[in-house]
Design a protein around this nucleic acid. Structure first.
Lengths: 204, 204
DNA sequence: CTTTCAATCTTGACGTTGGAAAGAGGCGAA
DNA sequence: TTCGCCTCTTTCCAACGTCAAGATTGAAAG
C-alpha cells in the first residue's frame, strides 16, 4: 500500500480542504463574514481542527492571500506568454491577466491588497507579493529598456497604479455601476492601451 | 433655556460621539478589529446604547464611510480651489487632495472603497460617493472641454484609476515599502503630472 | 410645581465566534 | 504487539452583535 506519505490520516488533506473551503467562503461572505468555524464546517471537521494547521484565523487568511498572489502571478505570466513582440505587448497582456484574476476573485483580490493582509505579513506572503511586483517591473523594463532608472521607477508606479486602480474601482462598482461586463472589458482594454502608450512615450 | 431641541438628553451627542470614537477605533484596529462594544466603551456608554442610533454595526460603518466621502470631497474641493488656471491644474490639485485624505485616514479610506461598504449601500452613502465621482468628472471636463463623450469617459476612468491606484498601493505598502514620506510625495506628484498631461494630450 | 411621557440609556440574556486545554483515536516505527 | 506522535474532537471561556425588558431623564402639559 504505497500511499504518498503526505496523506497521513483521518481527513488527510485538511490543510488543502481548509484553503479551498476558505476561499469559497471568502468570496461568498466577504472578509467580515469570514469565520473559522464555518470554514471548518464546510471541510467536515470540528471547529477546533484548523488550529493544528493554522495558528489563527489570520494565519489562514495569510495563506489564502499568499496563494492568491501565486495565482495572480501565474495569470499575468500566462497572458504575457502569448503577447506579441511589440514594446507594449507585455505590459498590456499582464494587465489583462491582472484584471481577469481580480474580476474572477474579487474578495480574495481585496484581501490581498487590504490593510489587514499587510498587518499579517508572513514571509511567504511577502515573497509572493514581491514576485508579482517583479513580474510587473520586468514588463516595464521590456517596454522601455533604455530609460533611466528614475523614469523606469516612475513608469512602474504609473503602470501599476493605472491597472490596479481601474480594476479596484470596478470591483467596488465605483466605475461602471450598471455597465455590462463586455463594456467594462472594453474600457479596461482602452485604459491599458493608453497606459502602455504613455509608458513608452515618456520612457523614450 | 432655549437649547437647540436636538440636544435631548443623557449623553446627548451619542451619535456624534460614536462616529468619532468609531473612526479612531477603525484606524487603530482595522476593519476586522472594529467592534461595536469597544466603540461604545470609548464613548462612555453601555454596550447596547448604540442600538438606538445605529440599527447595526454595518449601519455605523456605513455612516463612517459616508462621512469619509463627504470629507474626501471637501479635501478635493479645497485643493482645487487654490489651483492655478492651467488645463491640468484642477486635475492635479484634486489628486493631491485625494491622496492626502487617503494617507491621513488609511483604514477609513479602505473601508470606503471596500467590497464591504459596497454591500452596505445606504442612500446617503451612495450619494456621498457619487459626489466625489462628480467632482472628479468635472475636473476632467475642465481639462478637456472639447473632447468627445467617449474620450471624456475614458479619460475619467484613466485619471481616477491612476490616482486611486497609486495611493491604494502605497497604503498597502505595495509601492515604496521603505521610502520616506517625502520621497513618496514626490512620486505621487510625478504620477499626477504624467496622468494629467496624458489626459490633455489624448483629449486634445 | 407637579405630573406625565416619550426619548434615551442600562441590564441581562441568547447564540455565535476565536482560541486554549485536555482527551480520544489512529498510524507508523520499534 | 506496543509505543509514541500526529491529527482531530470535546469541552470550556471571554468577547462579540443583537434583542427584550426595565430604568432614567429632560421637557412638555396641566
Amino acid at each position: 500500500m504505497s500511499r504518498p506519505k503526505t496523506q497521513p490520516y483521518h481527513h488527510g488533506q485538511l490543510r488543502e480542504a481548509l484553503a479551498t473551503s476558505g476561499r469559497a467562503l471568502l468570496e461568498e461572505k466577504g472578509i467580515r463574514g469570514f469565520t473559522l468555524r464555518e470554514c471548518a464546517r464546510r471541510a467536515g471537521v470540528s471547529h477546533a481542527a484548523p488550529a493544528y494547521h493554522f495558528a489563527s484565523i489570520d494565519d489562514l487568511l495569510a495563506e489564502l492571500a499568499t496563494r492568491g498572489f501565486d495565482e495572480l502571478a501565474g495569470a499575468m505570466a500566462a497572458e504575457a506568454a502569448r503577447a506579441d513582440g511589440s514594446a507594449t505587448g507585455q505590459l498590456v497582456a499582464q494587465g489583462i491577466g491582472y484584471m481577469a484574476f481580480a474580476a474572477g476573485n474579487p474578495a480574495l483580490f481585496q484581501l490581498m491588497f487590504s490593510r489587514e493582509a499587510n498587518r499579517l505579513d508572513t514571509a511567504p506572503l511577502a515573497a509572493a507579493s514581491e514576485a508579482v511586483r517583479a513580474l510587473h517591473a520586468a514588463a516595464v523594463e521590456t517596454a522601455i529598456p533604455h530609460a533611466s532608472g528614475e523614469i523606469k521607477q516612475r513608469m512602474t508606479d504609473f503602470a501599476g497604479a493605472s491597472m490596479h486602480g481601474f480594476i479596484a474601482l470596478v470591483l467596488e462598482s465605483e466605475i461602471g455601476g450598471k455597465d455590462s461586463s463586455r463594456a467594462l472589458k472594453a474600457r479596461g482594454l482602452a485604459l491599458l492601451s493608453v497606459m502602455a502608450e504613455t509608458v513608452v512615450r515618456v520612457g523614450a
